[in-house]
């Protein structure tokens, strides 16, 4: 059971409290949306989970093991993958190379063997090339496979970032505003990919999102953050109509 559990997680940069008492659980196969106004600390939650930030307090558990304060590459190797808001692709590499980088922890080839490109290395490369092709097929990027990512339109780059996380064969997926910067068509594709992951892979997804319509349509559960504090949690239709949430987004004097 690869559930992701946060218990009273807090984070501060100097005197600035970024997160305070953030607690939630996401189960396998659950699409858990994390929403809130700008600066609410949504990305910080993801950074704490994947170890890029060290939570100042509280406890983060994944698959029954505490991962608080663990190094990012160790957390990634346990099966937590993430995407980035701005793609953060390796610009000078092709799509395939970007995805192969994500297979790093699934390789066990040794440096000297690689330098001599021994048959075992060749076999491993071919095997991982095949896995990457499956991911490319899943997200329908086949025709871009040999292109350098910096030559691709932003919408495609975002999907490549998404595919790169999938190439890790994760047990939990953290999505940081995957729809930001995408047009209507691209958003529909993305929604389809997310739903397919839920149905076919059945992994937990923490999904930071600004598109309320998408959240209302797709998410299983929603947590709303405001100034680093959770203000509401539940099913989308309950949460999005909660007066506190409306206030956080629109202010008290709206209308």
């Amino acid at each position: 059971m690869a559930e992701l559990k946060l218990d009273a997680v807090s984070l501060a940069f100097g005197g600035l409290k970024v997160l305070e008492g953030v607690s939630f659980q996401a189960q396998d196969g659950e699409l858990f949306a994390l929403i809130g106004p700008n600066g609410a600390g949504k990305t910080s939650v993801l950074n704490c989970i994947c170890g890029l930030y060290r939570a100042g307090g509280g406890r983060i558990e994944f698959a029954g093991r505490a991962i608080t304060g663990e190094k990012p590459h160790r957390i990634a190797r346990m099966g937590v993958a993430r995407t980035f808001q701005h793609g953060e692709l390796f610009a000078h590499m092709t799509v395939i190379e970007n995805l192969l980088v994500a297979r790093h922890a699934r390789f066990a080839t040794r440096l000297l063997a690689e330098g001599l490109f021994l048959p075992a290395v060749r076999r491993a490369e071919e095997e991982h090339r095949r896995s990457v092709e499956e991911v490319l097929e899943f997200v329908e990027l086949e025709r871009y496979r040999h292109q350098r990512v910096d030559a691709l339109p932003f919408g495609i780059q975002k999907i490549v970032g998404f595919a790169r996380a999938l190439a890790m064969e994760p047990k939990a997926l953290l999505l940081d505003e995957p729809s930001a910067g995408l047009n209507r068509d691209e958003r529909e594709d993305l929604a389809r990919h997310i739903l397919r992951i839920r149905h076919e892979l059945g992994i937990a997804m923490i999904w930071v999102e600004h598109d309320m319509q998408m959240v209302a349509d797709l998410a299983d559960r929603v947590l709303v953050l405001n100034y680093g504090q959770p203000i509401a949690e539940g099913r989308p239709e309950e949460v999005l109509n909660d007066p506190r949430v409306v206030e956080a987004y629109l202010g008290t004097h709206a209308l």
Partner: peptide, 21 residues
Amino acid sequence: SRTGRAWRAIHGREAVAAALG
């Protein structure tokens, strides 16, 4: 192969490389 890709990945994008394992 794997090592070379890791080298290219840490070039300017260390945090991303770490998040990829």
